[in-house]
Design a binder for these strands. Structure first.
Length: 564
DNA sequence: TGTGGTTTCC
């Protein structure tokens, strides 16, 4: 055969890593061993790197350890191998060992070390590494600078990230993306979009990563228009075929309430577990929750394993649908399939069992959660309040405070709605002013609770006054609470007032029209009932399965309107 | 031999 040379192997081995040709790579390693060439540094380095790209850590280390001679590239390749496999502690250990052995870490070492430090959350060390890079004058290396930008943004502060970013003479697309991603993650959506424009002025075109980064900003700003523009752009540029892009689009459309558009992308694209989960979560939080349960079944038939997120979506759907039996079944599947205890899954279970009134089960799960977060407490408080055990709810609120939990605005929604269920106007007013004293500004839901509380105890005038005094425009939750109160007390005039706002805010929401029609009908005001019916028709409002807050006995509960 | 990316509870 053809004699094997170091040069030929060194040129082919890296390609195996890139192309994920594991069998071929293994064969080349065999050839090298046979020819006794495995002690050559360059070849050893290439093999360490190749196995690293296959995530075969042991094989990679085996080559590394028997190398008679190592240079900086050998260490960098080993570090890259650990980074690839998510073994961040080992990245750091290798970095320390190479330094101890007198091999000086260079720019390539740092650009692999820094992402590992981000994962480990080691900010102080990150800053030290920054200092070191300045001393060695490698901080201007674009890879190092980009890694520093990302490190500071994720661990330290966006400001420090900006300082490093602004010192970069010619930012590349990675530099821009790192800044944009972190701006979005810190809620600076507008600033992120500004940078997308700026990068183009500076001659850098957004790539798929840029778009993936800004798509969540669209849903968070509920800017469907921008989301659609990005969708169009990705079709024009062919980026739509990128799985990350199609998944981010599914998520964006779902979060903007456009489930049929999300479903369209899903149907037309290549799919992975994230695609299923994104759509599943989207449906679970929409009026079409039952679709997530269909999708949940589909996941297995597609040969994809459930993960924590799929379970969470399915449990949320069951909770919204009040499908408690099905929820219990899914809980069973979950216990059998998932080893580790996910804190957010425990909270989903709490949501299911509290809403279903299975408070003992919920309490057992709650007590078993080792790291209860504020959401765990809030769910329990909400649950006890929802089922009339308001004293327990208030007690839990106090316990949470004693426990040193950093309670939040949702905690106040929980106690305020407990007051509402108990008709405790004064106590509600107390909590309402208390939260202000805690520097928690009341939001829409808090006003909605107060409107509900005042309204259901017959103080409709006070409810209306409260709405008019709000420092911002009331949303549909607030007007919906007022409409619900009017329904209880049969006050059609105030109901009309609330409905006017609701028809404007949620013109597609059939529940509000139906409620007003029923009120007119009950009062025998058929002409007006017909008028609303015609309005509904002219606006093409479909009778979608939608949740409405209605009075049922003494409880405020969600129920299904329509044919869901 | 290197940097930036999608789904997570009330």
């Amino acid at each position: 055969g053809v004699p094997v040379s170091v040069a030929s192997l060194v040129s082919v081995v890296p390609a195996c890593g890139v192309e994920q040709e594991q069998g071929f790579g293994l064969a080349l390693h065999g050839l090298a061993l046979k020819a006794g060439l495995d002690s050559v540094v360059n070849l050893g380095n290439a093999l360490v790197d190749m196995y690293g790209k296959f995530c075969q850590v042991e094989a990679s280390m085996q080559v590394f350890e028997v190398m008679p001679e190592r240079n900086e590239v050998s260490w960098n390749s080993a570090i890259g191998c650990f980074l690839n496999s998510g073994l961040y502690g080992d990245v750091l250990a290798m970095f320390r060992e190479m330094s101890e052995r007198g091999v000086m870490p260079g720019s390539i070492t740092l650009s692999s070390l820094l992402p590992a430090l981000v994962e480990l959350g080691y900010f102080d060390l990150g800053r030290e590494v920054h200092g070191y890079s300045i001393k060695r004058a490698i901080d201007s290396d674009i890879f190092v600078a980009n890694s520093l930008v990302d490190m500071y943004a994720k661990l330290g502060s966006l400001e420090k990230a900006c300082t490093v970013f602004e010192k970069i003479e010619v930012p590349n697309v990675v530099s821009w993306n790192a800044m944009i991603a972190n701006l979005v993650q810190n809620g600076a959506e507008t600033e992120a979009f500004r940078l997308v424009i700026k990068m183009q002025k500076d001659g850098e075109q957004p790539n798929s990563i840029t778009l993936v980064n800004v798509l969540p900003a669209c849903s968070r700003m509920s800017s469907l228009k921008t989301g659609k523009q990005i969708h169009a752009w990705s079709i024009r540029t062919g980026l739509i075929f990128d799985l990350f892009i199609s998944n981010a689009l599914i998520d964006m459309y779902a979060k903007c309430g456009q489930l049929s558009l999300a479903q369209n992308i899903f149907d037309l694209s290549e799919k992975d577990d994230v695609s299923y989960n994104a759509l599943l979560l989207g449906y679970s939080q929409s009026p079409w929750s039952f679709e997530s349960l269909n999708l949940f079944k589909e996941i297995r038939s597609a040969g994809i394993e459930y993960d924590a997120i799929s379970f969470m979506g399915a449990l949320t759907a069951c909770t919204n649908l009040c499908a408690f039996k099905q929820g219990k079944e899914i809980h069973g599947v979950l216990v059998r399939r998932l080893q580790s205890n996910h804190p957010f899954l425990a909270n989903s279970l709490l949501g299911l069992y509290t809403k279903g009134g299975m408070l003992d089960t919920a309490t057992k799960i709650f007590n078993r959660i080792t790291e209860k977060d504020v959401a765990s407490w809030n769910t329990m408080i909400m649950g006890y309040g929802m089922h009339g055990q308001i004293d327990v709810a208030f007690h839990l609120f106090d316990l949470m405070k004693d426990d040193g939990v950093d309670y939040d605005h949702v905690s106040y929604i929980a106690v305020l709605s407990a007051c509402s269920h108990g008709g405790l106007v004064e106590k509600g007013k107390e909590y309402f002013s208390q939260m202000r004293a805690q520097n928690l500004e009341p939001q829409q839901m808090h006003y909605a609770c107060m409107v509900d509380l005042l309204g259901r105890t017959g103080q409709l005038t006070e409810s209306v006054e409260l709405i008019q005094d709000m420092p911002f425009h009331a949303n549909s939750d607030v007007w919906g609470a007022l409409l619900g109160a009017c329904r209880i007390h049969g006050n059609i005039e105030v109901a009309q007032y609330a409905a006017e706002h609701l028809f404007e805010l949620k013109p597609e929401h059939s529940g509000y029209y139906t409620l007003l029609i029923n009120m007119y009908a009950e009062a025998g005001r058929w002409n007006e009932a017909n008028k609303i019916r015609k309005l509904m028709k002219s606006r093409k409002v479909q009778k979608n399965p939608a949740y409405s807050w209605v009075q049922s006995g003494n409880k405020l509960q969600a129920f299904l309107v329509g044919n869901g």
